[in-house]
């Protein structure tokens, strides 16, 4: 056989470096003054996934979520021990620029909180703050993120109208679009649907599923069914007898809701306590 007649050999592609962990907490303790709110929380969050944090009221879910973009820095007397790494870098290092961190790790809150300005201005607010004043680019960003947030078709003809005229569900999707406008890597969501009706809730959940193809999402929710529907991984937290929040179980959502390992998780999800 001539060499030329040999079939082409597949060229081995160099493998892209894969970071297995986007966020990692190591033995996190959080104190508000003398009160310990979180104890010994260890978890690893993979990129491009949705992680839900569930648990009874006061167990430290939101406190943990807020640690991921250092929102607790704003609370006087709050003190954090342990490490939280974003792509392997401890975000509690002194050298970390918190503004840059919050650009990479965006937050969507419980109540839709659009700024009292036009839909367009809500979206471009972040990019402008980060120094982008190019109109053509800003227009592109507005269309791109509104499409990503599944809101474009509903608002494309009224971009200059006040964002406050939108429905609650639309306002929340606008807030998600606003977070996307600064190209974050992680999106934190604190009860993002608790102020919405069931249909608007399902729309946000479906939006989360599509966003999870490109972003890492961490959601805190009181709604256990929502955590079950939307997340890939679920973390169950509860208060220890001394009221410090601890991570009881962290596993794939399908396992947590069909065969949890810890009796306390089982009792919580089956409504035996909570």
């Amino acid at each position: 056989m001539k060499i030329n007649s040999l079939p082409p050999q597949p060229v081995k592609q160099p493998e892209a470096p894969v970071c297995e962990t986007k966020l990692r907490t190591e033995n996190i303790n959080l104190f508000y003054g003398k009160f310990q709110a979180l104890r010994g929380v260890n978890m690893e969050i993979t990129p491009c996934s949705i992680t839900a944090i569930i648990g009874p009221s006061g167990c430290g879910k939101s406190s943990l979520l807020r640690l991921f973009n250092r929102l607790n820095d704003l609370i006087p007397n709050a003190r954090v021990e342990g490490k939280i790494e974003l792509d392997g870098v401890n975000i509690y290092e002194r050298t970390i620029d918190v503004v840059e961190l919050r650009k990479r790790v965006g937050m969507v809150f419980q109540k839709p909180n659009p700024f009292p300005m036009s839909i367009y201005d809500n979206i471009v607010f972040g990019p402008k703050q980060h120094g982008n004043n190019n109109h053509a680019e800003l227009d592109k960003i507005v269309e791109k993120v509104l499409r990503q947030a599944a809101l474009w078709d509903e608002v494309k003809d009224k971009l200059q109208q006040s964002a406050l005229n939108l429905s609650g569900g639309q306002q929340q999707r606008l807030c998600i679009a606003r977070v996307l406008s600064v190209e974050p890597e992680v999106i934190l969501m604190d009860e993002p649907c608790s102020a919405l009706d069931p249909i608007a809730t399902l729309k946000i959940e479906e939006l989360m599923r599509s966003l999870a193809e490109n972003y890492t999402i961490v959601i805190v929710t009181h709604n256990m069914q929502q955590a079950a529907r939307v997340s890939d991984m679920a973390a169950f937290m509860m208060m220890a007898p001394d009221r410090a929040g601890e991570l009881v179980e962290y596993d794939e959502t399908s396992h947590i809701f069909t065969n949890p390992k810890d009796k306390r998780t089982e009792d919580y999800i089956t409504g035996r306590f909570g």
Binding site: Q225, A228, R229, T253, S254, F257, T258
Partner: peptide, 9 residues
């Protein structure tokens, strides 16, 4: 099926 029942209502 069990997973869908447990997670998707």
């Amino acid at each position: 099926c069990i997973e869908l029942i447990a997670t998707q209502q």
